[in-house]
């Protein structure tokens, strides 16, 4: 509806207020304590689990121990966990995925969020359709706040990227919190 575009734009031109400048976002104070500790505290408050102090090899056995029932697993880091599902037949094939192990890029301590991009999600739905989600995160990649996170991400966003903070949840019935609404029923972050 090309005409609508012109109509909308001309209405805006006619109605918009005088130009005001964009503000500078200042550098806000950053806590001096250990950011990975703060990250873990926040993530646990929003229903996630944080495991640290393990080597890559130990992470693999920790995962198998924590999810002994998981039959359909996907991982792009074979040294941590072997994949046994194929992604070639499209996202719908992942219907019964039990476990996904995904590499996160940045952790944000103020809200327990992990930045994950499609570089680590060859099917975007992986991180949502799986029953349980595991994120691996380099603890040196944890920043305090969202401003720092976006500074690290830069101006060019990936085709798909997401901040994940905890498992899927809802409180839509009487405000009582239920973990595992439409997405994963648990989130575990391994800090490496």
């Amino acid at each position: 509806m090309e005409k609508s575009k012109e109509t909308i734009l001309s209405r805006i031109k006619k109605s918009k207020p005088e130009s005001t400048p964009l503000p500078e976002i200042p550098d806000f104070a950053i806590p001096s304590s250990d950011l990975s500790l703060l990250f873990a505290q926040t993530l646990e408050k929003v229903g996630g689990r944080v495991v640290h102090g393990l080597s890559r090899e130990e992470v693999g056995s920790a995962i198998r121990k924590a999810f002994p029932e998981a039959r359909h697993c996907w991982s792009d880091t074979p040294d941590v966990l072997e994949s046994n599902v194929s992604l070639h037949q499209g996202p719908h094939q992942l219907e019964n995925l039990d476990l996904a192990v995904v590499q996160g890029e940045i952790g944000v301590a103020e809200n327990g969020a992990v930045w994950v991009t499609e570089a680590a999600l060859p099917q975007r739905v992986l991180a949502f359709i799986t029953l349980d989600l595991i994120l691996l995160l380099d603890k040196n990649q944890i920043v305090w706040n969202m401003h720092q996170a976006y500074q690290k991400i830069g101006h060019s966003l990936p085709g798909f990227g997401i901040f994940i903070s905890g498992p899927s949840k809802t409180a839509d019935i009487e405000q009582s919190l239920v973990i595992g609404a439409q997405g994963p029923t648990s989130l575990t972050v391994f800090l490496l």
Partner: peptide, 10 residues
């Protein structure tokens, strides 16, 4: 502190 999912589509 943030929603569980903040999805960035490009």
């Amino acid at each position: 502190p943030i929603t569980a999912y903040s999805s960035h589509f490009r």
